[in-house]
Nucleic acid binder design. Structure first.
Length: 480
RNA sequence: GGUGCCGUGGCCGAGUGGUUAGGCAGAGGUCUGCAAAACCUUGUACGGCGGUUCGAAUCCGUUCGGCACCUCCA
């Protein structure tokens, strides 16, 4: 209806139009479950979450959201062959290598689910999490289709996609302008033992190496023992689960090439259709201005951040505060700032709920429209949040009348269906009796002007994890 | 080497020709015994150099710097 999105296919911000009225089908390139997801991975999933929530809340679309789980590739294989990577929670390591692969990847899949839940993604928003190894047969079928159309060839037990031939048929390089004749010279390390006709050809079926999990594939009269190529899984799963074409495909910017480009080529060469109408790519996350990497010692998983005392919801809000097509520079100071500003919004909401003294009328509809219009404009969260803070600054909750408050709360409920950072329950914390007693003693000390004792008691309360605030009536206690 | 993106005040981050973005931090204030919270006030920024223009962070040229992709990568 009215959301505008940047489409990598056209390199323009376009008015989004779904294939079927009122419905949007989204496929997100999900994690490779060979380890815990790092915060760069998580940003991509959070951006996809922002997209689907915005479509749902702002334009009322019914969303079908699929995120794949890559459970077979070089990295998973590498890690299952390394005994030190095995954890007791994965079960018993057996001689059945495919069994090991399943157990290993299942563990990290579950951990991934825990992470995204902590980040505020809701499992109920997902339609499916297909795993690549559950679609081996369908992948073989696609290879056969591609071969039948003349765009695949077997060599050394592997099957390759013939990019050169494809380029005569259709454009290759739809997502990114690439100068194929001028690929980095001298550094083109083709360490594969596989024999490709051209370096730009990519693998559809990869011949087995010693110790690797493998499947049998009857192809043009030969039995090829091996496994599917990485690009193939998405082409297959999105077709099987969503059907072609679907509406939006999401992923990190690094996947534009070759992953998504090859996905387009495969799907079109095999199924005769391109996968999707809109390609949605989020920019990278950096840490302290650098690319995140293990060698730079700035590599974080969500659990690393939690161990450092960060609240995952603050991480969520910090990431959502940056535009998805901008590099997000993750710093601890920034999460700290995000935490404070988040709490400011939360306190404002609590004031809307609790106080009842004001009478002012404020045009909430006007503000709400402006706010959501920013989101409709290619998910411009920084502008939307700027609008929100400007509004909060100009319109103190305390002076608003009940009707305005209720309208504001309606706004915040919609806001929260997208941002997912607010609570509408007044904090009803059980303050231990001993803390209340200390606070009462302090108030008495205060009344008798024994300020030294009062200050000591306040410090004692702080040390026990609570903060005391004096009010006109007496005091309030909050948990830190 | 090829392709593309970006350089805004202490930090983050909007802004594409003339009007206060915003957040965090900082400063001052109201309130308070002191705090905390809240609220009010407060920011001579736009990498450098040229050019176009009455006027440029915004357009053009150039230069410096950073980043990404170029078949492992969210």
């Amino acid at each position: 209806m009215s959301i505008k999105l940047y489409n990598t296919l056209t390199k323009e911000i376009e008015l989004f139009k779904p294939i079927k009225r009122g419905e949007v089908k989204i496929y997100s390139c999900g994690p490779t479950v060979y380890n815990y997801a790092h915060i760069g991975n998580l940003r991509a999933f959070l951006c996809a979450d922002l997209l689907q929530r915005t479509l749902k809340v702002v334009d009322g679309y019914k969303i079908t959201w699929v995120m794949n789980i890559t459970d077979i590739d070089d990295k998973t294989i590498k890690n299952i062959s390394d005994e030190t990577q095995w954890k007791p929670q994965m079960g018993v390591r057996s001689n059945d290598i495919i069994e090991n692969l399943k157990n290993f990847t299942s563990y990290y899949k579950d951990e991934f689910h825990k992470d995204i839940r902590l980040l505020g993604l809701s499992m109920s928003h997902f339609h499916d999490f297909p795993r690549a190894t559950d679609f081996i047969e369908e992948m073989k079928s696609l290879i056969v289709l591609i071969a039948n159309n003349g765009f695949a060839y077997e060599s050394g037990g592997s099957v390759y996609f013939n990019v050169g031939k494809w380029k005569d048929t259709d454009k290759y390089g739809k997502l990114k302008n690439l100068d194929f004749d001028n690929f980095r010279s001298g550094e083109r390390v083709d360490s594969d033992e596989y024999e490709r006709e051209q370096v730009s050809d990519f693998v559809l079926w990869k011949a087995k190496k010693e110790g690797e999990p493998s499947w049998e594939f009857e192809f043009e009269g030969k039995t090829l023992i091996g496994r599917p190529g990485w690009h193939l899984e998405c082409s297959v799963m999105e077709k099987e689960i969503l059907g072609l074409p679907f509406d939006i495909h999401t992923g990190g910017i690094d996947l534009q090439f070759p992953h998504h480009e090859d996905e387009i080529a495969q799907s079109k060469a095999g199924y005769g259709k391109e996968p999707t109408n809109y390609w949605f790519h989020n920019e990278f996350l950096q840490v302290e201005g650098q690319k995140m990497s293990k060698s730079a010692r700035n590599f974080y998983t969500l659990r690393d951040l939690i161990d450092k005392g960060l609240d995952p919801i603050d991480v969520r809000f910090a990431m959502l505060s940056a535009h998805y097509r901008s590099k997000y520079n993750f710093t601890f100071d920034d999460v700290e700032a995000a935490s404070k500003s988040r709490k400011r919004i939360q306190r404002y909401v609590y004031e809307l709920i609790s106080n009842n003294v004001g009478h002012d009328y404020v045009d909430v509809t006007l503000f709400s429209e402006k706010f959501f219009n920013h989101l409709k404009n290619d998910l411009h969260t920084p502008k939307a949040l700027g609008e929100l803070f400007t509004f909060i600054n100009k319109n103190a909750a305390i002076v608003m009348g009940r009707n305005t408050r209720d309208e504001m709360l309606e706004f915040f409920k919609e806001f929260n269906e997208i941002f997912g950072i607010l609570s509408f329950e007044m904090p009803d914390e059980d303050i231990p009796e001993e803390i209340t007693m200390l606070a009462t003693k302090r108030i008495e000390a205060k009344k008798s002007k024994n300020y030294d004792l009062a200050d000591m008691l306040r410090i004692e309360i702080n040390n026990r994890g609570y903060v005391i605030k004096d009010t006109a009536e007496g005091f309030e206690i909050e948990k830190l």
